[in-house]
Structure formats: C-alpha cells, structure tokens
C-alpha cells in the first residue's frame, strides 16, 4: 500500500531516499561503530579502505586529525536533517501565517506584509544569512533561526498568491454569507485548498535548508566547531583533495543525495497533489 501522494516514481524514490538518510542519521552510532570525534594523529588523511594504503577500520578513510570520515558523514546527517526539518517547518509556519493574513484580509495587512517581503528580498539570501549569523553568533539553534528568518519569504510569496486566488472564489464569499466567522472561513474554505502546496513547498524547502546550513558551515559561520556538519567537512578537506579524496567526496555526495531526495519528493508531490506551482514564484 503506497499512499496516493507517492504514486509518482519521483516522489517515491525521493521519499525512500529521505527515509534511508533519516535511518542512517538515527542509527549512526550502530552503523559507524567509531566515535566521530576520536582523533588519531598517527593515522591522518588515510585513503578509503578499498584504495591502496587504506585501513579496513576506516571505510572511507580519515581526515586531517585522523577522525573517521564515514562516522562523521553519518553524524553530520543528524545536523543536516534536524536543520532541514526544523528550519523548513519554522519557515513554513512563519511564512504561511503571514500569507493567510495577507491573502485573505487584503488591504493594509496585505500591503504591509507585501512590502516587508519586498524589503527582505532586496538582499540575496546568502548575504542576509551571513549578516544574521554575524548578529546571532554560531551554533545549531542560530543556524536554524537564520534559515527561518531568510526563507519565510519563499513560503509567504507563493502561498499568498495562491490564497488570493482561492479567497476570490465564490465559495469563500458564500461561507461568509451563510454565517461563517473569518476564522471558520479560513479554516474550512481556504486552508484545506492550500495543504498540497504547503506540503510540496515544505519538501523543497528541506533541501534548501540543507544547502543553506552547508554553506554557512562552509564559510565557518554555521554550527559550533564541535558539532559535525557536512559543510565544515568540505571546508576542512579542501587542502588534501589528493591524498584523501573521500574527505571531500563523502560529504559532497551526502549533501547531493539529501537535497536530491527533497527535490525529487517535492517535484513528485507537485504532480500527484496537482499543485500548480509556478516556477517563477517558487
């Protein structure tokens, strides 16, 4: 039994991939068997086990401090996924509440929220995130907060446009005429129609959040240095691409797979849930 939403092969592959990554993150201690923070200064920059000079104890080799790459990638998935889920959800809540208000109420509310989004979007997201991180300081919580504060506009813009279309439909006016309160009207006549769009956006946003976290960690403004993050691993690996390529390849591949899972799921859902998500609004 596959839910209808996952009938599209893309959505299905995306969901399975995402589930596998989540399982890997969850069971990281059992899969890795090595502490990702254990340093071995005698066995630094080991190549992967299947390459010449590899150590079978370190399947994907070790980094410049002799820490196990595989273990770090697996534990890094925990960081990436918590950012993906919490930040995407947070951005959705903030963005969609404002979008419902703007789209349904119209008038001044819409104007103020619209202008706020415009001001927000006059910064490239990377720059805004950097400035926010400068203000907030490093750390997982702040990374999540920064992503929410940057990306809520994405939800707000797309959803507001949708809400405006739905709010113009006659059944919304009819609900008001039969006596529904504003809250009842939004809950019964508007929100249900936007759920497919929200789910699709949420899934795409999860991928964006993973990238954002990796970028911030890459420039050293992401999580604290004792937390394991893929972006940081990539930044650390750049000086030793030759000796230990898996230092770079493993986290790169991990980012790609996670983002691809989110995008495949989102693209598939867009089809199965029949969301008319205009690309220029996404």
């Amino acid at each position: 039994m596959i839910p209808r939403a996952l009938r599209d092969p893309r959505a299905f592959i995306g969901a399975v991939l995402f589930a596998l990554i989540a399982l890997a993150a969850l069971f990281a201690p059992w899969i890795a068997r090595v502490d990702p923070q254990d340093q071995d200064l005698l066995g630094t920059l080991l190549p992967a086990a299947f390459q010449a000079g590899g150590d079978p104890a370190h399947l994907l080799g070790t980094d410049a401090l002799g820490r196990d790459v595989l273990a770090r990638v697996l534990y890094g998935a925990r960081t990436a996924l918590s950012v993906a889920l919490i930040a995407a959800f947070g951005a959705m809540v903030l963005g969609s509440v404002l979008a419902y208000a703007a789209g349904y109420l119209g008038g001044w509310t819409d104007w103020v929220i619209g202008r706020t989004v415009e001001i927000w979007m006059s910064f490239p997201p990377v720059i805004l995130a950097l400035i926010l991180m400068t203000g907030l300081g490093t750390g997982l919580r702040n990374v999540i907060l920064a992503i929410i504060l940057v990306d809520w506009t994405r939800f707000c813009r797309v959803l507001r446009a949708e809400v405006v279309v739905i709010a113009r439909r006659d059944h919304v006016a009819a609900a008001r005429l039969t006596g529904f309160s504003h809250l009842q009207t939004v809950r019964r006549e508007i929100i249900p129609a936007t759920i497919p769009l929200l789910i699709t956006l949420l899934s795409l946003e999860a991928g964006i959040a993973v990238i954002a976290e990796a970028i911030l960690s890459f420039v050293g403004l992401g999580v604290k240095s004792d937390q394991i993050a893929w972006g940081q691993m990539i930044a650390d690996s750049r000086d030793a691409i030759y000796q230990a390529p898996w230092n770079l390849l493993a986290p790169t591949l991990a980012i790609f797979l996670t983002v691809a899972a989110a995008n495949l799921l989102g693209d598939g859902l867009r089809r199965t849930l029949d969301v008319r998500l205009r690309e220029d609004r996404a």
């Binding site: 439909r169 006659d170 059944h171 009819a174 609900a175 039969t178 006596g179 529904f180 309160s181 009842q184 019964r188 006549e189 249900p192 129609a193």
Partner: peptide
C-alpha cells in the same frame, strides 16, 4: 467556484446551520 471542491454535499447545503 461556489462549491468548495473539498466539502461533502451534505456539509455544503447545511453550512448555515453549522455556522
């Protein structure tokens, strides 16, 4: 456009009583 595509007919016709 006047009927919510996600509502059951019985709910639509008695909307006024629900309100």
């Amino acid at each position: 456009s006047a009927l919510n595509p996600r509502s059951r007919i019985a709910d639509i016709v008695t909307q006024a009583m629900e309100a």
